[in-house]
Lab assay of single mutants.
Amino acid sequence: MTVRVDGVDYEFSSLEEAVRFALKMAKSKGAEVQLHNGTFHVE
């Protein structure tokens, strides 16, 4: 599972870890999280 934040990809071994990271980053940026074909994008 890959989480992309500001064009940088972060790899996670589990969906749970990836979701937690994506939500944490989105909250800190006041951004939204989108899921596309198994890849999260924080914008």
Rank of each mutant, 00 (worst) to 15 (best):
Met1Val: 12
Met1Gly: 06
Met1Tyr: 15
Thr2Trp: 14
Thr2Ala: 05
Val3Met: 02
Val3His: 01
Val3Trp: 03
Val3Leu: 02
Val3Asp: 00
Arg4Ser: 08
Arg4Leu: 04
Arg4Ile: 07
Val5Ser: 02
Val5Trp: 06
Asp6His: 05
Asp6Phe: 09
Asp6Thr: 02
Asp6Val: 01
Gly7Lys: 02
Gly7Met: 04
Val8Gln: 07
Val8Pro: 00
Asp9Glu: 09
Asp9Ile: 12
Asp9Tyr: 11
Tyr10Ala: 00
Tyr10Val: 02
Tyr10Glu: 00
Tyr10Asp: 00
Tyr10Asn: 01
Glu11Gly: 06
Glu11Met: 13
Phe12Leu: 01
Phe12Ser: 00
Phe12Ile: 01
Phe12Cys: 12
Phe12Ala: 00
Phe12Thr: 00
Ser13Lys: 09
Ser13Met: 08
Ser13Pro: 09
Ser14Tyr: 02
Leu15Tyr: 14
Leu15Phe: 12
Glu16Met: 08
Glu16His: 06
Glu16Cys: 15
Glu16Asn: 05
Glu16Lys: 09
Glu16Ile: 11
Glu17Val: 03
Glu17Ile: 02
Glu17Thr: 02
Glu17His: 03
Glu17Trp: 02
Ala18Cys: 13
Ala18Phe: 03
Ala18Trp: 04
Ala18Ser: 01
Ala18Leu: 05
Ala18Tyr: 02
Ala18Glu: 00
Val19Ile: 13
Val19Asn: 03
Val19Cys: 15
Val19Thr: 04
Arg20Tyr: 08
Arg20Phe: 06
Arg20Trp: 07
Arg20Met: 09
Arg20Asn: 10
Phe21Asp: 03
Ala22Gly: 01
Ala22Asn: 00
Leu23Ile: 14
Leu23His: 13
Leu23Ser: 10
Lys24Glu: 14
Lys24Asp: 13
Lys24Cys: 15
Lys24Pro: 00
Met25Trp: 07
Met25Thr: 05
Met25Gln: 05
Met25Lys: 02
Ala26Phe: 06
Ala26Asp: 02
Ala26Val: 05
Lys27Leu: 12
Lys27Met: 11
Lys27Pro: 02
Ser28Val: 14
Ser28Tyr: 11
Ser28Cys: 15
Ser28His: 11
Ser28Phe: 11
Lys29Glu: 08
Lys29His: 14
Lys29Val: 10
Gly30Asp: 06
Gly30Leu: 07
Gly30Pro: 04
Ala31Gln: 06
Glu32Arg: 14
Glu32Asp: 09
Val33Trp: 03
Val33Met: 05
Val33Phe: 04
Gln34Cys: 15
Gln34Thr: 14
Gln34Glu: 08
Gln34Asn: 10
Leu35Ala: 04
His36Cys: 15
His36Val: 13
Asn37Met: 05
Asn37Arg: 04
Asn37Leu: 10
Gly38Tyr: 09
Gly38Asn: 07
Gly38Ile: 09
Thr39Leu: 11
Thr39Cys: 15
Thr39Tyr: 13
Thr39Val: 15
Thr39Ala: 14
Phe40Asn: 10
His41Ala: 04
His41Ile: 15
Val42Glu: 12
Val42Leu: 04
Val42Met: 04
Val42Ala: 06
Val42Asn: 10
Glu43His: 10
